[in-house]
């Protein structure tokens, strides 16, 4: 038994590492590599931390298993080494991790600033918001400005956020956007907290009652992406499913135009659009 336990504690980190190593082959890993430039940087940061963390994990477990192996004893009353510690060791294992941790946190700042600091946002995207997305139990309501509408200044955008224009275009759960371009939405909620989560683009932002939060993203491939509500919003939270469709600039213009036309031409209220939007 004396040798059994060190091996027992050795087995599990080995299994953990092998398991993680194989995970991507079974689909137990990122669904796709990030489909956006900022997302790729987030992935890189993840892999950097993963390397550091795995090194520490392996090191600590090796040390643990070694001491368990080397210093186990079955003789009662046998004496161990009588020592109360080492000043030098304490210094070493305080300062080294401190340096590593400080490095990790400083290294993250830039990506975070670009994701969330409005000052760093793309001017073009800020000036031409793609849409307003309003979360409510349990759907995503989308309001685009009329096709071709140009906002003169920030004040006009603020006004548009407060008071919808008659020519706005509405749809539900299906957000279209041009690919390969930084686009910006204004996120809000009508009732409780929700969270706007597009895993493939590595974007997540809570929708907060009383706040309008600008969120930008850029899809680097023409594709469709899951939009998941990631903040508990009630019993139907699980089915608050949306979709992002990134398409070419021309296709997007066409889509928006058709949407606007259908909405205006026959005078049928947005409800009908809703049905069609959900039907996909």
């Amino acid at each position: 038994m004396r040798r059994f336990w060190p091996l027992f504690f050795l087995a599990w980190p080995i299994i953990a590492i092998v398991w993680s190593w194989l995970a991507p082959y079974y689909g137990w890993w990122f669904h796709k590599p990030a489909q956006s430039p900022l997302g790729q940087e987030i992935d890189n940061l993840f892999y950097l931390i993963l390397i550091i963390v795995t090194t520490v994990f392996v090191g600590v477990n090796m040390a643990l298993v070694y001491v368990l192996w080397k210093f186990s004893s079955t003789t009662p009353g046998e004496k161990g080494t009588f020592t109360h510690g080492s000043h030098i060791l304490e210094m070493v294992w305080t300062v080294t991790p401190a340096g590593v941790l400080l490095f990790i946190s400083l290294y993250q700042m830039d990506v975070w600033a670009r994701f969330r600091m409005v000052q760093t946002f793309d001017k073009q995207a800020l000036a031409h918001p793609l849409a307003e997305v309003t979360a409510r139990q349990f759907e995503w309501r989308i309001r685009y400005p009329a096709p071709g509408r140009n906002f003169k200044n920030k004040a006009e955008i603020d006004e548009w956020l407060k008071h919808p224009s008659p020519d706005d275009v509405y749809t539900v759960n299906d957000l279209h956007c041009p690919a390969n371009k930084k686009v910006l939405i204004h996120l809000r909620t009508e009732d409780v907290l929700h969270s706007f989560f597009i895993p493939d683009l590595r974007v997540k932002q809570d929708a907060v009652p009383g706040l309008v939060i600008p969120v930008w993203f850029e899809a680097s491939k023409r594709n469709q992406y899951d939009l998941i509500c990631a903040e508990l919003c009630g019993w139907g939270h699980y089915k608050m499913k949306g979709r992002i469709s990134a398409e070419s600039e021309a296709d997007f213009a066409k889509y928006l135009h058709a949407l606007a036309q259908r909405q205006a031409d026959d005078g049928v209220p947005a409800k009908v659009e809703t049905k069609e939007g959900e039907g996909h």
Binding site: V60, F71, S72, T81, L89, E90, W93, T94, A98, W112
Partner: peptide
């Protein structure tokens, strides 16, 4: 973020000290 990273530090120090405690012991 910085303060949170820093709180991992005392946790690390404790872990190393536990390993140090086992080191040279007579583990039962």
């Amino acid at each position: 973020m910085v303060s949170t990273m820093m709180i991992a530090l005392p946790s690390a120090v404790k872990t190393f000290n536990w390993l140090g405690t086992l080191w040279g012991g007579r583990i039962q």
